[in-house]
Simulated assay, not measured.
Amino acid sequence: MSAAEDLSVDGVSVELAGTRLVHEVSLTAAAGQVVGLIGPNGSGKSTLLRCVYRVLRPAGGAVRLDGEDLHALTARESARRVAALTQEHSAEFDFTVAEVVAMGRLPHRRGLGGPTGADHERCTAALRRVRAEHLAGRGFLNLSGGEKQRVLIARALVQEPRLLVLDEPTNHLDIAHQLEVLAIAREAGPTVLTALHDLNLAAGHCDRLYVLAAGRIVASGTPAEVLRPDLLAEVFGVRATPVRHPDTGALQLLFDRLPRPLP
C-alpha cells in the first residue's frame, strides 16, 4: 500500500483567459481519506483538480501536501507524491498496455536506467488489480473506453503516490468496474481527491464531500450531512429522496425531476 499525506487547499482561486472560474476555495483531506468533489457541470471541479495536480497554477492561494507547497516542488518530486487520472488523455503513438503502465514508474527511476524486475512486478500486479492483465500486450489505442480507463488507473497505482487525484474515474466503466475502481483507490492507501457525477457513488465511497457551485464551496461534510434534499434541489435542480441500503445501511438517493411551473 502507498503512504498517504495530508492535503490542504487554502483559498485557491483560478483564472483562465481573464475569467475567474474558482473563487477562494479551501478544503482538506486527511491522510488516507477519500474526499469527493460534487457539483453540476461547469461548477469548477475539474479546474480545481488541475491546480492540485499542477496543470494550472492558482491565481491566489496554495495547494499543500503535508504542509509543503506542491507548486514549489520539482516536477520529479511532485510526480513521486501525486498521481492523477484526468478526463482527457491522448496518445499519439500506439504503446502497448504494458508500456503505458510502466510509464508510472518513471519518477522512481534513476538516471537513464530502464525498468527493473521489481518495476515489472509492480506493473503486472497493478494490471491484475484492475482486472486488465490480459490486455498487457494489446495496443492502447485499440482498447475500448472502459479498458483504457482501467489501464490508466493501473498506471496511477504503480506511481505509488501519496495523493491520488481522480477526475471522473468511473467514466466509461460498467457498474461492476465503477464500484471496483473506487474500492481499489481506497485500498491502495493514498489520500484520494476525486470529482464524481454519480452522487450515489459519492455517498457510498467518500469520507467527506465538498459541493461546488459556480466555482465556490457551498457545502461540506459527511455524505449524510451534505446530500440533503434541500441542497440537492438548490444546486442540482432535482428532487432527491434519501433511502438506506437494506444490507449495509449506506445512504442512497432516488431522484425525480422537480416540478416546473407552467409558462
Rank of each mutant, 00 (worst) to 15 (best):
V226H: 02
L49E: 03
R20T: 15
R110I: 03
Y210C: 05
A185R: 06
L16E: 14
L48P: 03
S90D: 12
G139I: 11
A132N: 04
L258H: 05
N200W: 03
R228Y: 07
R128F: 05
S220M: 10
P40F: 14
D198P: 07
C51P: 02
H23G: 03
E24A: 15
G104E: 00
A188Y: 10
I175K: 10
C123W: 01
G61P: 00
L56R: 08
G137V: 05
A136S: 15
V12W: 02
R260C: 06
G32W: 11
L7A: 09
R122C: 06
R216V: 12
L227E: 02
E160S: 08
C206V: 00
N200R: 06
E234V: 01
T96M: 01
E92P: 06
G117C: 03
R228E: 12
L56C: 08
L254C: 04
L37A: 13
A213V: 14
Q159G: 04
L70N: 06
L227Y: 06
N200G: 05
L253F: 09
A59H: 06
R208K: 13
V218K: 08
G42R: 15
E99A: 11
A185V: 01
L112F: 02
P107T: 11
F95H: 05
V22Y: 02
L27R: 02
G39R: 07
G189F: 00
D230P: 02
V211W: 01
F140A: 01
L182P: 05
G67R: 11
S46E: 13
L7Y: 10
V12T: 12
A240L: 04
L21A: 14
H197V: 14
L37T: 08
R80F: 11
I217E: 13
E234L: 11
H245Q: 10
E68P: 03
I175A: 15
K148V: 04
A176S: 15
S26G: 15
G32E: 10
T86D: 00
E187N: 06
V235T: 12
T191H: 01
R257K: 13
R129E: 14
R244E: 15
L48M: 08
G42K: 15
Q33E: 15
L212N: 09
T194C: 12
V238P: 09
K45F: 09
A102W: 00
V25C: 10
A224Q: 15
C206I: 03
V218Q: 01
S90E: 14
D256F: 06
S220H: 15
R260G: 07
R208P: 04
V9E: 08
F93N: 02
T124V: 08
K148M: 08
E77Y: 12
G18K: 10
E168H: 13
I175Y: 15
G61I: 01
V235Y: 07
R208M: 07
G11K: 11
K148C: 09
L196E: 07
R80M: 06
G237N: 10
L253Q: 06
D167S: 01
R131I: 04
L112D: 05
L135P: 00
I38P: 05
P246Y: 08
V25D: 12
C51E: 00
L262C: 09
